[in-house]
Design a protein around this nucleic acid. Structure first.
Length: 467
RNA sequence: UCCCCGUUAGCUCAAUGGCAGAGCGUUCGGCUGUUAACCGAAAUGUUGAUGGUUCGAGCCCAUCACGGGGAGCCA
């Protein structure tokens, strides 16, 4: 194991003049007459360690296997580099070959790969510059999220992955079962005769992978005041876009004694905090994204950190869109949900930064959102980001028992399934609010990457669950 | 799921219905310290699959598979 201090990140940060040992994978090799150059990476930082090998100093039967993709341990002396491009370099004395990589078949070259090709070799793509940067940023972002909430006293709650409640209502769900699919037990008699007999199943009833931890988080918010979840989430929607995954990670804070204003305030502080943190900790990686992936990324992120978000109500947004003079594929009018083209116009043309749209018509939002006094709208908010679209969706929750019960009945939901959700309003209810944020969507925003499949290690999408 | 585009060497892409091509990578050789090194040479093909049209199909037609962009659903 590499001890602290032995990562290439640490070696590059140390001063010349001492022995050093590096472990890693060869990214490229350049040969000249009297000297060989190796770029070595162990994933600990964006920069490679340049290793210099004098001709004849390493046995030929080892050196010939030190090719792109090979894994080695190299011991030598850390010296000042005479050439531009790096401060220090490792002058090799001894090389131990762990795993060669046949250069005739190793698929990673030093240039010219498309994201689609790299996705097909997801077991090797993490060794590339781009995916090294992506997953270091992903790591830093995850830690930044936890530290944001920890600094504010939030309790981190592990909401269940498997749920037997069919009331989550946020899209199609994956079933979870131990029944023999080739030989399903059937109900023998009565009204449900012939249907699958779930009393035989593991949980005694149909079970699913969670589509949201929100309802569970609300339980904890009404006991621990401020809580958040951060975990995997599953949607069985047949969505084929650069913005959707069947398995993704979601962050869901939930705050008691909080209204929509407080919710928006937290959402904005959250985005600014985590972006600033990643900019601070992964500057080399972000520089790479700005140079090779999207040359507006740094400018965009600085803009987000340094400016207040724009707030508009749904009603105002509709007016802006109506007056825009644009021709829309989907007409704009009060009561219609905002389409992608509308969101993009608001974020990319009108305001050119994240926009929080609030107070949507009740008909197009979920039953649990708190009704406004106008009788037409609910206290919902969507944070829209340029290029990404909806990055956060949240609301103040309906805390009044009677109003919530009415909503459940009006929308023809199964009242009994929500018994515990209703009881939260019966015993010690409190105004509360929260939001859901797609972790990978935030990754897209931070990195400038174009496809959500390229910001998660092993993407799961309709028809694809490789690796 | 719908609309549009695509699938040719390891990769990125060319190729009027008439001999299958280039760049990169790889291999070999050269080069006094390179930075996506440079110079020279060589090897590399079931043109996504299955049918069809044609004297002749990488190219035209049909179906399917896979990929990309847009849309819907949403985070």
């Amino acid at each position: 194991m590499i001890e602290k201090g032995g990562y290439i990140r640490d070696i590059l940060a140390s001063t010349a003049g001492a022995p050093a040992t590096a472990h890693g994978w060869v990214k490229t090799r350049r040969d000249s007459k009297g000297v060989h150059f190796i770029q070595l990476s162990d994933g600990s930082c964006f920069a490679d360690l340049q290793v210099v090998i004098d001709a004849g100093s390493i046995p030929e039967d080892i050196l010939k296997h030190v090719t792109t993709g090979a894994c080695v341990r190299i011991s030598g002396d850390l010296v000042e580099s005479p050439a531009a491009g790096q401060n220090v370099e490792l002058r090799a004395r001894e090389i131990e070959l762990f795993g060669p990589a046949d250069s005739q078949t190793y698929p990673l070259q030093k240039k010219g790969h498309t994201m689609e090709f790299l996705r097909d070799i997801a077991h090797l793509r993490s060794r590339s510059n781009t995916f090294g940067a992506v997953f270091r940023v992903r790591n830093a972002l995850a830690y930044a999220i936890h530290s944001f909430f920890k600094e504010r006293g939030f309790l981190y709650v592990h909401t269940p992955i498997i749920t037997a409640s069919d009331c989550e209502g946020a899209g199609a769900m994956f079933g979870v079962t131990t029944l023999d699919m080739q030989n399903l037990p059937r109900v023998k008699e009565g009204e449900r005769k012939g249907q699958v007999d779930y009393t035989e199943d593991f949980f005694g009833k149909p079970a699913f992978l969670t589509v949201s931890g929100q309802l569970n988080a609300e339980i904890f918010a009404l006991a621990f005041s401020n809580v958040y979840t951060f975990g995997p989430t599953f949607r069985a929607e047949n969505s084929n876009t650069p913005r959707h995954l069947a398995e993704f990670w979601m962050i869901e804070p939930e705050m008691a004694f909080c209204d929509l204003q407080g919710d928006m305030k937290l959402a904005e502080a959250f985005l600014k905090y985590v972006i600033a943190k990643v900019m601070d900790e992964c500057s080399a990686d972000l520089d790479f994204f700005n140079k090779r992936i999207d040359n507006t990324v740094l400018e965009t992120l600085e803009n987000v950190v340094n400016n207040d978000f724009v707030h508009v109500t749904y009603t105002e947004a509709v007016k802006i869109l109506e007056k825009s003079g644009q021709t829309w594929e989907f007409p704009v009018h009060f009561g219609a949900d905002l389409q992608s083209e509308h969101e993009r116009y608001l974020t990319e043309q009108t305001f050119k930064r994240p926009v929080i749209v609030t107070d949507y018509p009740k008909e197009i939002k979920a039953f649990y959102m708190r009704a406004n006094d106008d009788g037409k709208t609910v206290r919902a908010m969507d944070v829209l980001a340029p290029r990404i679209g909806e990055i956060i969706g949240g609301s103040q929750r309906e805390e009044r028992y009677d109003v919530l019960l009415d909503k459940i009945r009006q929308q023809d939901l199964n009242e009994e399934a929500y018994w515990w959700y209703l009881e939260l309003r019966k015993y010690g209810s409190a105004p509360h609010a929260g939001f859901g944020l797609g972790f990978e969507r935030l990754m897209l925003y931070l990195t400038g990457m174009k496809n959500i499949r390229d910001v998660i290690p092993f993407p799961r999408t309709p028809g694809s669950a490789e690796f």
